[in-house]
């Protein structure tokens, strides 16, 4: 762990690894936003002082090895089943803080039933949903979130909505469920967005700690490798194409959450 121990006594650390992250190199592609999102979660867990009671659930997807990068108790779920696994953990250990970290194939295709029912039961878990409009790990196939006309390895002519349906807006879908207390869509495409995303993640964990219900932060993300773009082009592409289809902002803020927001 990087703890700042190499820093000379007359200097003060101004930036370092959060305690909730390990210092292992990640396997993520250069330019991928998974690393940014990992860091935001780790900072929030540190700041809330909950590292020693937090359990993470990794998905099947590019973040399958997330447990190598978080300095937390962790498990790795079957594809799409992280919300069910998190439910099992939380129900038998209500004092732990449980979060799932899921991609769009994991959460919005194979695991649609699990996320909807976990949210609808108001499970006291937090879901970080990384929407990169593609299946990253398996090499860039069409995801349920792939945009109309978007070319992927399994939609070579571009997503044809007459055949493949429309991209699913999960934050809106989950937001209407009574068990969901806080649902929001954020993006990590520029610094102000990253800051807002962190605030949202923080609130989502606080909602869980306060026992208010299910919380989810959908995060618009990039997959420059499978989009065939440079990292910077990918950020621009996401702003130009994803943000208009997937509007940023809260889709659900329960009254109790509003009260919590006013507290701090």
């Amino acid at each position: 762990m990087a703890t700042g121990q190499d820093i000379p006594p007359d200097m003060e650390p101004v930036y370092q690894y959060p305690e909730s992250l390990t210092s292992r190199f990640t396997h993520y592609c250069p330019g991928c936003t998974h690393g940014v999102i990992h860091r935001l979660i780790a900072e929030v867990i540190d700041e809330l002082g909950i590292r020693e009671r937090t359990v993470g659930v990794a998905p099947v997807g590019c973040a399958v090895l997330a447990y190598d990068y978080f300095n937390l108790d962790f498990c790795e779920a079957a594809h799409g089943r992280a919300p069910a696994m998190a439910t099992g953990i939380k129900r038998v250990s209500p004092d732990t803080v449980v979060f799932t970290y899921q991609g769009d194939g994991d959460l919005a295709a194979i695991g649609t039933a699990e996320i909807i029912h976990a949210a609808n039961r108001g499970e006291l878990i937090t879901t970080i949903f990384v929407n990169n409009a593609i299946y990253g790990m398996t090499g860039g196939q069409m995801a349920p979130t792939t945009l109309p006309g978007q070319v992927t390895t399994s939609s070579p002519g571009g997503r044809d909505v007459r055949m493949a349906g429309w991209p699913i807006k999960m934050a809106e879908l989950i937001g209407v469920l009574p068990g969901a207390a806080y649902v929001t869509r954020q993006a990590v495409l520029d610094v102000p967005g990253i800051r807002r995303a962190k605030q949202a993640i923080r609130l989502a964990f606080r909602v869980q700690l306060a026992g208010l219900g299910f919380s989810m932060v959908e995060i618009l993300s990039t997959c420059n490798t499978n989009w065939g773009l440079s990292p910077l082009e990918a950020l621009e592409w996401a702003k130009a194409h994803m943000v208009p289809y997937y509007p940023l902002g809260d889709t659900k803020v329960a009254d109790a959450v509003r009260a919590l927001m006013e507290q701090a």
């Binding site: 359990v55 498990c75 079957a78 069910a84 439910t87 953990i89 939380k90 129900r91 039933a113």
Partner: peptide, 20 residues
């Protein structure tokens, strides 16, 4: 807990088992 399916049931079992 009555789960939404057997797929969910077994993965809830898996989670609870991981929690010991």
């Amino acid at each position: 807990l009555q789960a939404e399916s057997e797929v969910a049931s077994i993965n809830m079992v898996y989670g609870a088992a991981c929690a010991g």
